[in-house]
Computed example of a mutant assay.
Amino acid sequence: MNRKMLFRLINDLVMTVLMLIAMAYYITGNRIHEVIGVVVLVLFIVHNFLNRRWYKAILKGKHTFRRILQIGLNLLFLVAMILMMICGILISSDIFPFIPITNDMTFRQLHVQTAYWGFIIMAVHIGLSWGMIINSVRRMSRITDISPIRTITLRILAVLIVAYGVHSSFEEEMGTKLFIYNPFGWFNDDSTIRFLIDHLSIMGIYIAGTHYALKFISRQEQKEAPRTSGGLKG
């Protein structure tokens, strides 16, 4: 793996973990939340700078179902992140207290709601690139062989993560948080580690779901391809 790809993976991994920690507002407190938010903003700018060629190529090439889905989700994630960060800066009381905001309730609601939606979209975004991520990790760890035992073990692990993620999703009331804003906050007695485990498992639902859904679609397209080409020849 080249250094640029390794740097991208590390940047994205750190940004993902910090975004999860930032969501644990009731654990970290406001000041740490804002500091982490600024770091995430910097990492997000770096992420988009490293992927700037992707924006130039949006309208180029063949637009398959997978590519259209990827473009749409990436743009949704971009909009959610921009709204979340702008609103976060406007309602800041520790790092940017000099910004005058008289009625910040609307900005607070936008900040919170876009954070939760961005969390889900980010997980789907990772799921779209999961195959590439796995291949990069395999190259980095120099794993070249195909092991049925390893494959089965990883799939069992994925099922367990998804199962626990479904449980955590209900425990954390994720469905409610996506559509209902609570101005008093959502308070749980979780530790930071428990919070991270629960939310990483929730991400696992969307990562695994997106990854295997795309694999299924790819297989269906491969099955349809010979029929189509055969029909054209006839």
Rank of each mutant, 00 (worst) to 15 (best):
I71L: 04
I21P: 02
H33S: 04
H167V: 08
T151E: 09
V79D: 08
I121Y: 10
F170W: 13
T106H: 08
W130L: 15
H63C: 00
I126F: 10
S92W: 06
F179S: 06
I161R: 00
G61Q: 09
T114Y: 07
D94H: 11
K62C: 01
Y55I: 11
N182Y: 07
P100C: 08
F195R: 00
K62F: 02
M105F: 12
I134S: 09
T228M: 07
K56Y: 06
I205E: 06
A24F: 09
W117T: 05
V137K: 00
I120G: 05
Y116P: 06
S129A: 14
V166C: 05
M19W: 12
S136W: 14
N74C: 03
I202N: 05
M5V: 10
Q220M: 14
L128H: 09
R194E: 13
I58V: 15
Q222I: 01
P100M: 08
F107G: 03
A225W: 02
P226Q: 00
Y116H: 12
I149S: 06
G230W: 04
F184D: 09
I134H: 13
L75R: 02
Y164I: 00
F187R: 15
V166Y: 04
L196V: 13
R227E: 01
L178T: 01
N48W: 13
R53W: 04
Q109P: 03
N2T: 15
Q109H: 10
H211Q: 09
N103K: 11
P100K: 12
K4L: 14
K223D: 01
I152C: 07
A225K: 09
M19D: 02
I121F: 15
K4Q: 11
I133R: 04
Y212I: 02
I205D: 06
L9T: 06
I89D: 05
T153H: 03
Q113N: 07
I68K: 08
S218G: 08
I193Y: 13
N182K: 03
P148N: 03
T192Q: 08
